[in-house]
Amino acid sequence: MNKLDYKPFPKFTKEFVEQNIKVDWGDLAWALSNHWLDVSSIAELAEVLALKNEYLCTSLAIARINKDELALETLVFQQAQKYTVPDELVRERWMLLAVKWLYQHRNTFDNPWLVIEELWAAFGYPSSLNCLIRWMPIPSDRKVGEETMLEKWHTLATS
């Protein structure tokens, strides 16, 4: 599980994540490793995933009652090892969540385009975000300008 230096601000909420992706153990491990959700949100999301497993439900409940973050982390990471989706896809899902989050909170930043560049760098310069990087060359047959970039950002954030 790769850790990123980038941290979303404000931090993601459980409700935002639930509304935008079908969370699995790999997602929880990623969010936990990168501190993109608080521990309480991770515990609540884990409880939903564990509903069909009495042992996991009980273990998670005990960890929450005892405020035992290490036990919670251990359970999440153990379950994530069984997760079959490649880490790259989990990373991309969280990157797109970050794009959406930034779009929804862009007015809280003096320069949201700079934040997009930080996100782009943190995720290893994915070409899927090149259209949001102000200084990247664009084909001569495409429109230019901040309005066009905002339209592209909106499209990425709402897809």
Rank of each mutant, 00 (worst) to 15 (best):
V115D: 09
K11E: 15
Y55A: 11
T13A: 03
T74K: 15
E147R: 08
D141E: 02
F12C: 05
N130W: 02
C131M: 05
S40R: 09
W113Y: 13
C57Y: 04
E69A: 09
D68G: 04
L32T: 11
S40A: 14
T74P: 02
Q19P: 02
K3C: 09
R142A: 01
A29V: 03
L114A: 14
V76E: 02
G26E: 11
T158I: 12
M136K: 07
L28S: 06
L56C: 08
K11N: 10
G145Y: 03
T148H: 13
H154I: 00
T84L: 15
N107A: 00
F9H: 10
E88S: 13
N66T: 13
T155R: 09
E88H: 11
A50V: 00
V23E: 03
S41H: 11
L97C: 14
L28D: 09
F109H: 04
I21R: 04
I138Y: 03
R91C: 10
S40Y: 06
E73F: 14
I138M: 12
M95E: 12
E117F: 10
L150K: 07
K7V: 07
L89W: 08
N111S: 12
D5W: 04
A50Q: 01
S41E: 15
I65V: 15
M136C: 01
D27T: 01
L4S: 04
A50K: 00
S33W: 03
I138Q: 14
F16I: 01
Y83F: 14
Q19F: 03
L49V: 02
I65P: 05
K67E: 15
A31S: 15
M95A: 06
M95N: 08
V48G: 00
S40T: 13
D68A: 03
C131G: 04
P137H: 07
S140P: 02
V23I: 10
G26R: 04
Y6C: 01
P8E: 08
L97E: 10
E117K: 14
K100F: 05
E118T: 10
F12I: 00
N107C: 01
L150E: 04
P8I: 08
L49G: 00
L132N: 12
T148M: 04
D87M: 02
I133E: 06
S127N: 12
E88K: 13
E146H: 04
I21S: 03
I62S: 07
L56H: 09
W30I: 03
N20Y: 11
I42S: 10
W94N: 08
W153A: 05
T13S: 15
L60Y: 00
W94Q: 09
A122F: 05
L37G: 12
A46L: 05
Y125S: 15
N53V: 07
C131E: 11
K22Y: 04
T148Q: 11
L114E: 15
K82F: 14
R64C: 09
D87G: 08
W135L: 03
F109L: 00
A46Q: 02
Q79A: 14
P137R: 05
Y55L: 10
L96A: 06
A31Y: 09
V39C: 06
Y103F: 15
L37H: 12
L132D: 09
Q78H: 11
I116R: 14
A157E: 13
L51Q: 07
W113H: 08
A80Q: 02
C131Y: 01
E15I: 06
K82N: 15
T148D: 04
K22W: 01
P10S: 10
Q104C: 07
I42M: 09
S140A: 11
